[in-house]
Nucleic acid binder design. Structure first.
Lengths: 236, 236
DNA sequence: TACTCAAGCTTGTATATACAACTATTGACA
DNA sequence: TGTCAATAGTTGTATATACAAGCTTGAGTA
């Protein structure tokens, strides 16, 4: 069993693939334990294990009596606090407005090219989102996307897709690192954020791995805006 | 089964208690699945589940053929990146020096009192650690400890215990939030860090829950020092 | 029509069993 | 004494089974 893959792993990979290729959309019902057991010719407990581990990873959501479903953006709270906070702001009385620019190819610095794992810099897409709260600009997001790793349908339609939509369609993320630094922002960014050039800002470099795309984004927040991160919540 | 606790939960709680009270030290061997099954009069699979979930939470480490062991500080990488980074610095050629002050009771602000869950502010212990790298001060840690929630042996000997030792003896943490803010540090802190008063700094407020003690600490880092956070690593 | 409730499906817990894979120790042999 | 192989013990995977607990649906009733 060391050479050949474990059975529950095969099921997990199948489910991951269905989600990542978009064949199973958000909130879609996943086959029940018994159905999966029959489909893969395994016992219910083996199928159950696959579902359970993917649930722990945040890809699925289970409800006793109801069934198993593909997790929503919202459901993946433990791993993606940042995205959730952005969403919170978005939902809090619609006080948030974003100047949504379409993704467009740009040249990037060597560092970002390495982070994205690209050689040729013109295969990188870029977008900016300016977040408002109480009509005050509080956050500027700069997103760099390795176009080769973006799902095909997004590549084809990238011009019509807003960054927020892109993030929503992004493959479920199971890993991410955040590199946070205190900096003085460049002049034109300070102007966007309507702050003095000497105001200390947070710069967050976020790096994610997923089987579909590697996304790196930088966020600059105005002072007073706290950046909250929750580690994995585990209850007994 | 909704009213009464599930059997595997009882076993988990027992193991947690043994670890938190120090009866099972780091790297100590935990009873095997069969032993636990016999001890709690459950099946091996039930005992196994308890061990497995605690392993996922980072409290235990399992090795096929060898057994199950209490996790080391080092092993809990996924949840405690900050502590690990501090440790990294500590180990990297011993370039790190800390001015270790003993824990001492101090009055605190209302905010910290609330965070620590105390009414009377003089039950809060305080310590400062200044971190060096290449003989340059890079980080000042301010730690606030709710003395009531600190293990007894620490309370009795707090005067002899360095903050680093305290953290090492701290109960395994399963939850933590980090509130990060870009600020201008106060003058006396800037002097400690040997930076200009106008230099943007990171202020990290860390809040942890454990059954033993609640520790809240603020870290101010000098610019250029990045604050790295890794989310829970989940592999298929 | 609107409401109730029971049946059926789904997930949650628990057990008993079997074998595979790996480790560490023990003991026989050179 | 040193080496190696057998052995016992441990975790990992997988199955079959049973019942508990919660949701959904639809038939039947008021």
């Amino acid at each position: 069993m060391s050479q050949t893959k474990a059975k529950f792993t095969v099921i997990k990979e199948h489910i991951c693939q269905m989600i990542e290729t978009g064949q199973w959309q958000q909130n879609a019902k996943v086959p029940s334990e018994n159905e999966l057991a029959e489909q893969f010719t395994v016992s219910r407990m083996t199928a159950r294990r696959a579902l359970q581990e993917l649930t722990e990873q945040g890809l699925l959501v289970r409800s006793q009596g109801a069934g198993t479903f593909v997790a929503t953006f919202k459901s993946q709270s433990s791993l993606l606090e940042i995205r959730n906070i952005a969403d919170e702001i978005h939902e809090r009385g619609h006080q948030h407005q974003a100047e949504q620019l379409t993704l467009k190819p740009v040249p990037v610095t060597d560092e970002i090219a390495i982070l994205l794992g690209v050689e040729n810099s013109d295969s990188v897409f870029y977008s900016e989102v300016l977040h408002f709260e109480n009509n005050e600009p509080i956050q500027l997001e700069q997103r760099f996307v390795n176009s080769q790793l973006v799902p095909n349908y997004l590549q084809q339609n990238f011009a019509q897709i807003t960054p927020h939509e892109y993030l929503s369609n992004e493959a479920p993320l199971t890993e991410a690192t955040h590199e946070i630094e205190a900096v003085l922002a460049k002049h034109h960014i300070c102007q966007l954020l309507a702050i003095d050039d000497s105001t200390p800002c947070l710069q967050v470099k976020r790096r994610t791995w997923s089987s579909q795309g590697v996304v790196s984004l930088a966020i600059l927040t105005a002072p007073g805006n706290k950046y909250r991160l929750g580690s994995h919540l585990v209850l007994n």
